[in-house]
Amino acid sequence: MTSQLRLESFGATHVGCVRTNNEDSYWVSPERNIWVVADGMGGHEKGEWAACEVTKAISQIVPSGDFNADCNALADAIHGANATIFQAGQKQGVQMGSTVVALYLSGAHFALFWVGDSRAYLLRGGTLHRLTSDHSQVQAMVDRGLIAPEDAASHPMAHVLARAVGAQAGLEVDVITDEAEPGDVFLLCSDGLTNRIPDEEIATILAAEGHRSALDRLIALTLERNAPDNVTAVIVGASEATRLVPLPTLGGAQP
């Protein structure tokens, strides 16, 4: 698989300041140009297992270089994880599931897949674009004009998901595709981060610091604000690939 962009990526997760176990999972594969963040639900081992099932399913994909075929394979992997988690929950008599946000880059194309309220952002030209829309009860209320966007984070139903991998037998996965550009910075993260850092501050950090430093700063700032939830983030930066230009052959006899 060839790429017209040079990619640099980093990922990190932390249990947070309150919880004793980490139900988040992430997978970073610069070799395959796939990056994933998943946030489990169901409590303790169940949520952790569900999130790991999602990242494990996606980690089995080996891109072919055919963008459309690879996108179908990614979607199929998420649907496969949904079936695995749902069937396990049915057998155990419990409900468990996971969010997922996954980024795939091939050449100048990117595809983004998500279910739940883990988010993806794109910083381009100094402007932060939120690429995902939360699959949550509160976001549905915002969309219908029932509550103001600024009241969403503090709403008592803020953590109630409308859609999650493994919660139901059927699943709808949202997907967008577009072109990536040199200078693009992608951020994938669980809601443990976005519940503590507003978009304006995320934009400032991504624009002002290197990718590794920005990741460390985002995690540290979340913890400074008493992170009641697990926090996970992955940053992917794109720059123009170095091109080798052959020098003209010089004529004349060699000494």
Rank of each mutant, 00 (worst) to 15 (best):
E150C: 09
D216G: 08
S239Y: 03
D143W: 03
R217V: 02
A203P: 00
G183F: 03
V236Q: 08
D143S: 15
G210C: 02
G170T: 09
E201C: 01
T242E: 15
S213I: 02
E224P: 01
D143L: 06
L206R: 09
N230L: 03
V175P: 05
A153M: 08
D184C: 05
E224L: 06
A227D: 01
G170V: 00
L244T: 09
C189P: 02
V142I: 12
V231R: 09
H155N: 15
L221K: 12
D229T: 08
G183L: 02
A140T: 05
L187T: 07
L215R: 14
H159A: 14
A164K: 07
D143H: 08
I176L: 15
E181W: 05
E181L: 09
I176S: 14
E150P: 03
A167H: 03
L161G: 13
I197K: 14
S154T: 12
N195K: 15
S154M: 07
T232P: 04
N226I: 02
L218I: 00
A167T: 06
M141W: 04
D174L: 01
D151V: 02
T194G: 11
A220W: 01
G192N: 07
M157D: 15
A241D: 08
G237L: 03
T222Q: 07
L171N: 11
E179Q: 14
I202Y: 02
E240I: 01
F186M: 11
V173W: 02
D191N: 08
V142H: 13
